[in-house]
Design a protein around this nucleic acid. Structure first.
Lengths: 248, 248
DNA sequence: AAGTGGTCTAGACCACCGT
DNA sequence: CGGTGGTCTAGACCACTTT
């Protein structure tokens, strides 16, 4: 830790100590020193190693917990967060049925191939022009009924050799797979919602008349290192499901 | 504060001290002991009055700040939150233009009258059957162009004598008005989004062809005391504006 | 019993704001 | 300058989990 001695003259580090500790621990987690599920050192141990007090370590850990990078369990320890299907769906998948219950959909992969990024995609991902991206198109169904079409774009540089079995159901949430297979921990998304009439292809897939009003969700996704790691366009038939948001 | 003496036998209060302090302060704020904008006692003063340490008071205040019930300003003091137009819009109004800039709309009141709650409304507001509710219909415009129609329902018991000048622009966000004129502090909303074709009346108001896909937002609103204080249905033309959501 | 995270205290010092 | 909130420490004790 930077010295806090009374005579240190210029700029040790303008941020408070707990913020510095938070940054150090964030770096170790996103850098892979401690993989998902791994236990962090105990609080007194961290305090001694970093040369700060117990309380300062706890304040940093509280911030990491709020960002969902770690999980703390009394009596057991502190662990790097594992993305589980339930957590990922609960947190980032805002679709609920008309009674407010969470959807529990299955996924059908329609296509997956790799090609050159459009200029807009290259800009969004901060990639060179025409860098390789994977494009995934899938249909999500509840009780055998399709209700959501998604087109997902991933930079090949971040997801080398990304593969999925076509036409097969996906058991896990995609974000779990990103973490387990590619070390990508999703921590933030930004979504822009609009309403649009169903095109011929989407109408066919969703089993609705062309022109039916659909809810379009354009999502951009960031990982713990602050990189844009995914873009997706989802089109939702809101006859049986809604997009639900709580603000407080 | 409940005694924490080592010999207190049964259940003083299972919650941690800071949670008890938070509950006490919440009660004073929502009860009106300290109106919006009023300064709270200084931290050492609160600590002494409640018989807890400085650190415990600070932890409770941090929770109140996270809930946006108070604002702390270093060197000045801690104040009961004032809803300002900017804050209310920023936090609860998720509409942005296509470049991500915040909309800065004006409002046109189309109608305002009082009648009997529907059974669904009575249930939502926990009111007796056919209790009085105010119904407000308004149009929101940006640069003179309408883009949003809203129907707002308020329980008359919570908003006695609610009035607005018809056909006039509203300078302030409604939630500011709820707090200033009726002592209602909005702290939470839940929104359910769907896509639907524009009806004849909405199409006419928004200047779009009937059947145009609109984004429908059904909002339910709670105040700091946990009461449902508002329901509204907003219909948004997403040609120029989007509903934007950040999750992390 | 030992080790973990969770709570609480008492006190020091700093950064900012007003007079 | 005195008063405010913000940071940091050292240590005590509690609650929970595992051995």
């Amino acid at each position: 830790m930077t010295e806090a001695s009374p005579s240190a003259p210029p700029r040790p580090d303008a941020r408070p100590l707990y913020a510095q500790v938070e940054a150090i621990l964030t770096g170790r987690i996103v850098g892979g020193d401690w993989p998902p599920g791994h236990a962090l050192p105990a609080e007194p141990e961290l305090a001694q190693e970093l040369g700060v007090s117990h309380g300062t370590v706890r304040k940093a850990l509280a911030a990491l917990e709020a960002r969902r990078l770690i999980e703390r369990r009394q009596g057991k320890g502190t662990f790097v967060a594992q993305h589980t299907s339930e957590q990922a769906r609960d947190h980032f998948f805002r679709v609920r049925d008309l009674e407010g219950r969470e959807a529990n959909p299955t996924s059908l992969v329609l296509s997956l191939h790799t090609d050159a990024a459009t200029p807009a995609e290259a800009a969004a991902f901060a990639l060179p022009a025409e860098a390789a991206v994977h494009r995934l198109r899938r249909l999500r169904l509840q009780d055998g009924q399709p209700f959501l079409v998604e087109e997902i774009t991933l930079p090949a540089a971040i997801f080398p050799g990304f593969t999925l079995a076509l036409g097969r159901e996906l058991p896990d949430e995609l974000y779990v797979l990103y973490q387990r297979r590619h070390g990508v921990t999703v921590v933030r998304t930004r979504e822009s919602l609009s309403a649009l009439p169903a095109g011929a292809a989407e109408a066919d897939l969703l089993g609705v008349p062309p022109g039916t009003a659909l809810l379009a969700v354009e999502r951009r996704t960031w990982d713990a290192a602050g990189r844009v790691v995914e873009q997706r366009l989802s089109q939702l038939n809101t006859a049986r499901f809604r997009y639900v948001m709580e603000l407080d």
